[in-house]
Design a protein around this nucleic acid. Structure first.
Lengths: 126, 126
DNA sequence: ATACAATGTAGAGCAAACTCTATGTCAAGA
DNA sequence: TCTTGACATAGAGTTTGCTCTACATTGTAT
C-alpha cells in the first residue's frame, strides 16, 4: 500500500508538518509520484513506528538521523546498528531504574503528607 | 548552615545561572544578606532536591512553580499538594510502564539483529 | 471550466529550559 | 590603594523539536 502524506499522518498520529520536518532532518525518505507528491509505503510505516519508539525513549533526532543514515547503507552497517541499539537499551535501563527510584521517594513523600494531614485533622478536632 | 550561590551551585549540581533562573521563575526564594547576596539554607537544599526529582520525572517548571506557591501558603494547602503528588505518581507509573514496553520491543529488535548478523556471517563463510 | 481541498517549498515563529553577556557592586587579599 | 573574584540585575542568545504561515501547484468533484 501507498499513502499520501495526509493518510500517513493519520496512520502514524504525526502531523503533516512533523512528517515533512522528519524528512527534512533525514529521518525518512518517502518515494515521490509523478507530481512530486510523497508516497509513503508500509515499510515507511514500520520504520516511522520504530523512530517513534526511539524518540519516546529519549533518543535525540540527530542520533536517530545517524541511525537512519547507516540503515540506508544496508548490510555492512548491521553490527554498528545493533551496537547502537544495545547502547540505547543500556540508557533505557538506567532511565527505568531512575524513575523507579524516584517513585519510591515520591511514595514516601505522599505517605508523609498523609500522616501530616491525619495529625492536623485529629488535632483540629480536639 | 548557609551557602552562597556558588557553594549552593556545587552542592546541588545546578549552575549558578540555573539557580537564578529558578528563583526568577518562582521555584525557590533564598534569603538575602545585608549586601543583597543570596543565602541558601539547608531547607533550601532539601527543597531543591525535591524540585530536581519533580523535574527528572517530567514535571514542567510551571507546575513545579504552582507547587512552590501553594507550599508557601503552608498548612491549608497540604491536601492539595498531596493530590498533586498522587496525580504525579500516576503519570510516573505510566511513564515507567511505557518505557518497560519499549524495552521489550527493543530487546526483540536486538535479538532480530543478532540472528541476522549470525546468518550473514555463516552465509558469508560458505 | 471552476472551485476547493490537499500537497509542495521555504522560511518564520514558538515553547521550554536553560545559558550566556554586559554592566555594575562590593569585600578581601597583595 | 588596587585588583581580583564572587556576586548582583536585566536582558539577549541557544538548543530542541516541532508548528505554522505564505504562497504556488495539482487533483478531484461539480
Amino acid at each position: 500500500m501507498e499513502y499520501s502524506i495526509g493518510d500517513f499522518s493519520k496512520l502514524t498520529g504525526l502531523g503533516i508538518h512533523t512528517l515533512r520536518y522528519y524528512e527534512h532532518e533525514g529521518l525518512i525518505a518517502p518515494e515521490r509520484n509523478s507530481s512530486n507528491r510523497r508516497c509513503y509505503s508500509d515499510k515507511d510505516l514500520t520504520w516511522i513506528e520504530f523512530i517513534k519508539r526511539l524518540k519516546d525513549t529519549g533518543m535525540p533526532i540527530k542520533e536517530i538521523k545517524h541511525y537512519a543514515e547507516i540503515r540506508a547503507a544496508g548490510e555492512p552497517t548491521l553490527s554498528e546498528r545493533m551496537e547502537m541499539l544495545i547502547q540505547h537499551r543500556q540508557t533505557l535501563d538506567e532511565q527505568i531504574a531512575q524513575l523507579q527510584e524516584h517513585k519510591i521517594k515520591l511514595d514516601k513523600k505522599i505517605e508523609f503528607y498523609r500522616n501530616k494531614i491525619e495529625r492536623v485533622n485529629v488535632g483540629g478536632a480536639e
